[in-house]
């Protein structure tokens, strides 16, 4: 590549990066006795424009493992697809479920080895035979940290305090789902880059269960009003 062409390519790259579609995001995963719950908002923005208001940031990797995605939508989508591919290949040669640890390891390696090129903060969580429910955080540089619960995305900054206070080690699946749901709703209430609906997935040995809370039914917090449309619906 000659000097001029390279210069042009770099300029183009800069331009593309700036216009990149990003998952402003609040994501969270928490473990409980016998499983995990993952949760996320549904906003994807391009600058100040909400490019997608019903995004699904909880992506299934295997039967019992999901990943929460934050950062660049393009990067994390493709990362997830690579991990899905490797895990699928691997599950065919294994006689058991692929472990959450292995899913997390693949995600970290991809993130770590391409850290210069990727903008991806992931949380890999799920259930397996050895560890039960487990949560692995894979932040920007590709560090791999096993944690009881993990927050990610721009919205997480607003709810660390609340989560530190309210997370308990042995919650029931229901309590854990409520914890995740409330945490995301609080982040959405203060973070402009998070919003829309709340999605959760509960993973136990018996399988995965999704919930969906439409934007009109997200709990209201300080300074917010109930939307008129919903009251009308109720009265009608």
């Amino acid at each position: 590549m000659n000097g001029e062409m390279r210069h042009h390519a770099e300029a183009l790259e800069q331009e593309l990066k700036q216009g990149e579609i990003s998952l402003g995001t609040t994501i969270i995963a928490a473990s409980f006795e016998g499983g995990v719950v993952l949760g996320a908002d549904s906003r994807t923005s391009n600058g100040n424009y909400v490019a997608n208001r019903v995004t699904d940031k909880l992506t299934q990797l295997t039967d019992r493992v999901f990943v929460c995605r934050s950062g660049s939508a393009a990067d994390t989508q493709n990362l997830s697809m690579y991990v899905q591919h490797f895990l699928h290949q691997h599950s065919m040669e294994l006689d058991t479920f692929v472990s959450v640890k292995t899913a997390a390891r693949l995600a970290t390696q991809l993130t770590y080895q391409n850290k210069n090129m990727l903008q991806a903060g992931l949380i890999v969580a799920g259930w397996d035979q050895e560890e039960g429910g487990s949560v692995y955080a894979v932040p920007l540089g590709g560090t791999l940290v096993k944690v009881p619960f993990s927050l990610g995305g721009s919205g997480s900054a607003y709810i660390y305090g609340w989560c530190d206070k309210n997370w308990r080690p042995s919650m029931t699946a229901d309590d854990c789902r409520r914890f995740v749901h409330t945490a995301v709703s609080h982040a959405m209430a203060r973070d402009g880059s998070s919003g829309g609906c709340i999605r959760t997935v509960t993973i136990t040995k018996d399988g995965c269960k999704r919930t969906f809370t439409p934007g009109s039914e997200v709990p209201l917090h300080h300074g917010e009003l109930q939307g008129a449309a919903r009251t009308m619906q109720v009265s009608a």
Binding site: K115, N116, P139, L140, G141, T143, V145
Partner: peptide
């Protein structure tokens, strides 16, 4: 030349 990364965690 690879760009020198900055530390994250």
């Amino acid at each position: 030349s690879q760009h020198t990364q900055m530390p994250y965690v």
